[in-house]
């Protein structure tokens, strides 16, 4: 005897949860990219919120740690909480603002999570970066200019430029090899200060110590140190404190490199 087969019943709750999961994931991706590229916590939270609300769900809460980002989104009685890992923090102004622009566009509605995800992938792939040689040259020029601002004399200008430029070039290579950022700070501090000090001595500079100090200023985390304060003022003291500790640690390692260089060159502060 044949019995009429009932159509399979679809439980709406798992369906809504799957939809919420996709939205939470894409909102977290936006928050992650913003956090990793120099945005403050408030901006990262705002970006994630814009994405979620543009996709038609309510953001019930967000939380940022130094290495993770969490969001709770909901619609009606369904809610979901998800977390994503945040990678190394850096500064990439063009990517940061391209993602903010995407969040603004998505907040007006009309985009699907898949479209936002593919746009994010495209932005990460195609946002232009300056070539490494130009970054090294510009960083060298910036440190040499810093040296002049600190009172370093003209004979030490080119040595500072070369030392910091080479330091940036080596830093780029070491970052690509995945070496720990603090170890990199110590290595670059030592290399840049040694080259800067030796060069300044050979050029007859009377401000060798200043030249060595200026040569390592590429390692000073200026954006994180001001972001730390912004985060605390915006009501995120945990993240602000984490950034401040990170800045201090980077400086300790950079100055360790400088101290080794001073010992090598027998310069006593």
């Amino acid at each position: 005897m044949n019995t009429p087969s009932n159509p399979p019943e679809i439980d709406p709750v798992p369906v809504r949860h799957r939809m919420l999961e996709r939205i939470a994931h894409v909102a977290l991706e936006v928050g992650r990219i913003l956090s990793q590229n120099g945005a403050s916590v408030r901006v990262a939270h705002e970006g994630a919120r814009m994405i979620a609300e543009g996709l038609g769900v309510e953001v019930l809460g967000t939380r940022s740690g130094y290495a993770s980002f969490e969001i709770t989104v909901g619609t009606g009685r369904n809610t979901i909480t998800r977390m994503i890992q945040i990678g190394p923090h850096g500064v990439n102004h063009r990517l940061d603002f391209a993602v903010r622009d995407l969040a603004l566009r998505a907040s007006t509605g009309g985009m699907t999570p898949e479209q936002i995800e593919s746009e994010l992938a495209r932005l990460q792939r195609e946002t232009p970066r300056h070539p490494p040689w130009l970054v090294a040259l510009a960083t060298g020029a910036a440190c040499a200019a810093f040296g002049r601002l600190l009172g370093a004399d003209w004979p030490s200008f080119v040595p500072m430029l070369v030392a910091a430029g080479l330091g940036q070039g080596v830093r780029h290579l070491l970052i690509q090899r995945g070496i720990n950022v603090f170890v990199i700070a110590a290595i670059i501090g030592c290399i840049a200060a040694t080259i800067g000090g030796l060069g300044a001595r050979l050029c007859g500079s009377g401000t060798i110590e200043l030249a060595m100090m200026a040569s390592i200023l590429l390692l000073v985390p200026g954006v994180p140190s001001t972001n730390a304060q912004t985060d605390i003022m915006d009501g995120y003291p945990t993240m602000g404190s984490a950034r401040a500790v990170w800045v201090i640690m980077i400086m300790v390692f950079a100055v360790t490199g400088l101290w080794i260089a001073e010992s090598l060159l027998r310069i006593h502060a």
């Binding site: 102004h93 063009r94 300056h130 130009l134 970054v135 510009a138 601002l149 200026g222």
Partner: peptide, 14 residues
């Protein structure tokens, strides 16, 4: 030199 330093770091920050 403030201008050179700011622009130089601007390149580093992309």
């Amino acid at each position: 030199f403030g201008a050179i330093a700011a622009a130089g770091f601007g390149v580093l920050f992309n």
